[in-house]
Design a protein around this nucleic acid. Structure first.
Lengths: 340, 340
DNA sequence: ACTATATCCCGAAACGTTTTGGAAAGTCAA
DNA sequence: TTGACTTTCCAAAACGTTTCGGGATATAGT
């Protein structure tokens, strides 16, 4: 049995392919009786339109692209879990599909982008984890493909994005530790090529300055956004002649590593060394002790981004929007108690 | 500037569309010089083939479909995180894209399947979380679309799947608690419509029987695979006239809920009530106390499934394969210490 | 000089859909 | 009876690619 197509229905009913198409498409220039006959036959054959053909004709794909940064062999960061879920949910309610790509190891990231974007695979893209002079943004800007971004970049902001206010966030967290009586607050910072590292560090230094605390370069160490990196940095920091009494990190995963190292060295997280993370992934609440961190509405942000993207894909030509998220500080036991 | 197509290259180089296509396609019936000229022009124009057109012609999509069960508004279970990552990685290395769909709330699951499968959107599908007489499997079997499954179903196993040996796994865990001296071991079981619930319960009962322990229907409560459900069931169990001394659950998320309830009631997890989970998601290691659980190689399984699927999509007509995973017991502090 | 054989190229059809620009037949108003 | 509308239908083109079946031209073999 041949796959049902417009042609097979056309043959079966005696109407032309055009009429079948228009009947199925709900146009009003087809007789009710005819339409019924065609719909019946379509149902009988189990017809469903061939997406590729339709999209080739319409030059649209009803698909949104998302490329996962190839940080590790397995993207173990729950951040992405939530983010993808948000995007997926937003896409689904808007009637779009989500095309998920992970960078292949043997090809460059830009190739992956080109492959997807190259006329036809997706109607729009979602970007995450912006970098300095992000080549992906330059490329997408150049191709005119609609896209939205979680994060900013340093160049002109002529694109739509949502970003956490990293300056305010890190300042908030640093202040919190200062108010808890800490003087030596270390920062296991995100890798410097990531755009948000800059903002976070700015916030860190601003809080120190505001409270007339000296900036100690020994206490600022950049690492990767992994638990392992957190462990390594903690070792370095705790081996200092004057170790810090509080350690903040680029994300919760790093914070977990820091906590583990502290505990392995026989110290207590909170009472001996306070720890602060970033993201508020689910585990942050469950780990012991609970992790003080900055809450990011990751899921909701994913949804919002898709909403914005869908507007753009539907031809809304309003100027790009820039949305800055206000940080929310979540205080848990890893802060320890207020000091003298 | 028009989008680069075969035609624009053809115009620019003076060769026919056919020749351009064949040059780009690497056929050997085109002069080296010609090929070079065409390749140069293609690069200059930034040509990339239009996927839809190519696929319409080839009747393939180079895309694998995966539909997320719409359990909750946000699929908070890290299980899916890992699984998707595994599938994505497998797909990428095989040169396939991953189309991720979440069920829309206002349409039935089967419609989502039909939409994807309907001639053209995907070349194959990955299924997860099988149910009794799973209609998705019946449907896919009927459409002849290649697919692989994480999990089994009760009917004839005429499809390729990988599954954890749930009987052995739950027996292993139950045995572990029995050996630790527990007599009243409760089971907060997965929802009964899920296929693996059967196997797990079988394993649970088998272990009891093997050690001549009575089966107490009060100690077997089915729930949802969420933390919240774990909390509720724990409350029920702890309010029993004869509460259990150990509680096993359908997945780690439920176990977290159980642990929290135990702690809220002023009891100690492990020493007072032992807890066992299932899946070994990352948090299971970080939570306090660490959670005894059954390790599932989720990521690797995703990859393996894709490998199998790709073989099938490439026309390998060998009979379906059934792979059963051996469980691995991970003992952590939530087991408490051996009892008298 | 004639045939056989490579080598290089191309026109046309096909994949399944949507859309454009009518055509044919019927209805209505004058 | 004629023109103007309506209603219902359709042929053909188009989207960008691959592939089938040759057609030229040059080279080699006799």
């Amino acid at each position: 049995m041949a796959t049902p197509t417009l042609k097979t229905i056309s043959k079966a009913t005696g109407f032309s392919v055009t009429t079948v198409s228009r009947a199925l498409g709900g146009y009003d220039d087809v007789n009710e009786e005819t339409r019924r006959a065609i719909l019946d036959e379509a149902r009988k054959q189990g017809y469903t339109p061939n997406l590729n053909a339709r999209l080739l004709q319409k030059q649209r794909t009803q698909t949104i692209g998302l490329i996962m940064p190839a940080t590790s062999p397995r993207l173990t960061d729950p951040f992405f879990n939530e983010f993808v879920a948000g995007i997926g949910s937003g896409a689904a309610t808007a009637g779009y599909d989500l095309l998920l790509s992970t960078d292949m190891t043997d090809t460059t990231e830009m190739e992956t982008y080109r492959r997807l974007v190259s006329r036809g695979r997706v109607d729009g893209m979602v970007l995450v984890r912006t970098r300095h002079n992000d080549p992906r943004i330059a490329y997408l800007l150049h191709t005119k493909l609609p896209f939205v971004v979680f994060g900013r970049t340093d160049a002109a902001h002529n694109f739509t994005y949502i970003d956490m206010d990293g300056v305010a966030a890190q300042r908030l967290l640093t202040q919190h530790f200062i108010e808890y009586g800490h003087r030596r607050i270390a920062y296991a910072a995100p890798p410097p090529h990531l755009m948000f590292a800059d903002y976070r560090i700015q916030g860190y230094r601003a809080a120190l300055e505001a409270h007339h605390l000296p900036f100690d370069a020994d206490l600022l160490i950049a690492g990767a956004l992994t638990e392992r990196s957190g462990r390594e940095i903690a070792h370095q920091l705790l081996s200092l002649a004057q170790p810090p009494t509080a350690i903040m990190t680029g994300n919760d995963l790093m914070a977990f590593g820091v906590m583990r190292t502290i505990q392995e060295r026989g110290l207590r997280v909170g009472d001996d060394i306070a720890v602060g993370g970033f993201d508020d992934i689910p585990t942050a609440e469950h780990i012991h002790p609970g992790l003080t961190t900055i809450h990011q509405p990751i899921y909701a942000t994913g949804q919002r981004l898709v909403t914005l993207l869908v507007q753009m894909m539907n031809g809304d030509a309003s100027p790009p929007r820039a949305i800055l998220l206000e940080p929310e500080l979540i205080i848990r036991a890893s802060s320890g108690s207020q000091r003298a």
